[in-house]
Simulated assay, not measured.
Amino acid sequence: MNYRKLGKTNFEVSEIALGTWQVGGKWGSPFNDKTADELLNTAIDKGINFIDTADVYENGLSETAVGRVVRSRSERIYVATKCGRHINPHVNEGYQPQVLQKYIEDSLKRLKLDTIDLIQLHCPPTEVFYRPEIFELFDKLKKEGKIQNLGVSVEKVEEGLKAIEFPNVTTVQIIFNLFRQRPSELFFKEAKKKNVGIIARVPLASGLLTGKFSEKSIFDSKDHRFFNREGAAFDKGETFSGINYELGLIAVNKLKELFPEVLNLAPLALQWILSFNEVSCIIPGASTESHVLSNLSTLDLPLLTPEKIAAMNEVYEHYIKKEVHHLW
């Protein structure tokens, strides 16, 4: 495993980490504690030391599983969780310091940890990033020992740029992958100036970049890849990076032509992200141990050549950029 510094936290984190949106069950299927424990332990066994979760993942069951496994291990595992998405309706006015503090205290109870290494605002409405009193809350919680660091998860580059104006923001979690390249322009440069860690989320475009889907693929009705393609439940950009599914398949087929001998594109897509030194870590999700091992196989590959990277970028330029680049 390779490790990189996570911005101002000074944590040395595994460059391939673990996102737990679907830990313990695929999207749309029931949560399974045994599967969750096996998956999390496998990740730690392989050198992963940064685990990202959220209070809304499986309505707290993901946090509970993460806390249970982390407490059972002797290694130093950094736990990041998120708060705010329980607010309903999810609007600016719902974000109040006392509301967020209650969510954080509830997360601590589920995790059964003394402190949270990294608490992140969970994709709040854009207006929240213009309210200093929200960010001041986390200085208070840090003094109380409930948290160690504050980060944000964002939908838009604009939100990330605004967030890092607050000096207590140590990390930004942002969608970044081969089909979502805009953050690598201005945002990466500004984050680096301020020593803000960058956590790349949705690195495989909801699985699209694995190359395993086709026109015949069927998603469960409770799977966001079925019901949220047009943003019916939350930001459209969370599902297939906001790309029209059929167009995405065309672009993926072009990627397959670049790597005709490769059956699983996921490790190559992750390696493309790691070619950016500004990225602190990637948090691909996993619902099985095999997914964890697939993600980690990235580290065993020869480095992508500049020519291959350029060819991958050309697929984005030709098929994807005009559809999504300006939106997030």
Rank of each mutant, 00 (worst) to 15 (best):
F135V: 04
F135W: 02
F135M: 04
E136G: 07
E136F: 06
L137H: 05
L137F: 11
F138W: 02
F138Q: 12
F138C: 12
D139R: 15
D139C: 10
D139M: 12
K140I: 15
K140V: 14
K140R: 13
L141M: 15
L141V: 03
K142E: 05
K142P: 01
K142G: 02
K142C: 02
K142A: 10
K142N: 03
K143Y: 01
K143I: 08
K143L: 11
E144F: 04
E144C: 13
G145V: 09
G145K: 14
G145L: 13
G145E: 07
G145H: 06
G145T: 02
K146A: 05
K146Y: 02
K146M: 00
I147A: 00
I147Y: 13
I147L: 13
Q148W: 10
Q148M: 12
N149P: 09
N149Y: 13
N149L: 07
N149C: 03
L150K: 01
L150W: 01
L150F: 01
G151F: 09
G151Q: 13
V152D: 08
V152G: 05
V152F: 03
V152S: 10
V152T: 05
S153W: 07
S153K: 08
V154W: 06
E155Q: 15
E155V: 15
E155T: 14
K156W: 08
V157Y: 14
V157R: 05
V157D: 13
V157T: 10
V157A: 13
V157L: 05
V157W: 10
E158P: 07
E159L: 06
E159W: 01
E159F: 10
G160R: 06
G160F: 06
G160H: 06
L161E: 10
L161H: 09
K162W: 00
K162F: 08
A163Q: 09
A163L: 06
A163W: 03
I164C: 00
I164F: 03
I164Y: 01
E165R: 08
E165S: 14
F166L: 04
F166D: 01
P167R: 03
P167M: 03
P167V: 02
P167K: 00
P167G: 08
P167A: 11
N168K: 01
N168R: 05
V169K: 07
V169I: 12
T170S: 11
T170K: 10
T170G: 06
T171W: 03
T171M: 00
V172K: 01
V172Q: 02
V172R: 06
Q173D: 05
Q173L: 11
Q173G: 06
I174Q: 09
I174Y: 00
I175D: 02
I175S: 13
I175M: 14
I175V: 12
F176N: 03
F176D: 07
F176H: 13
F176K: 00
F176M: 08
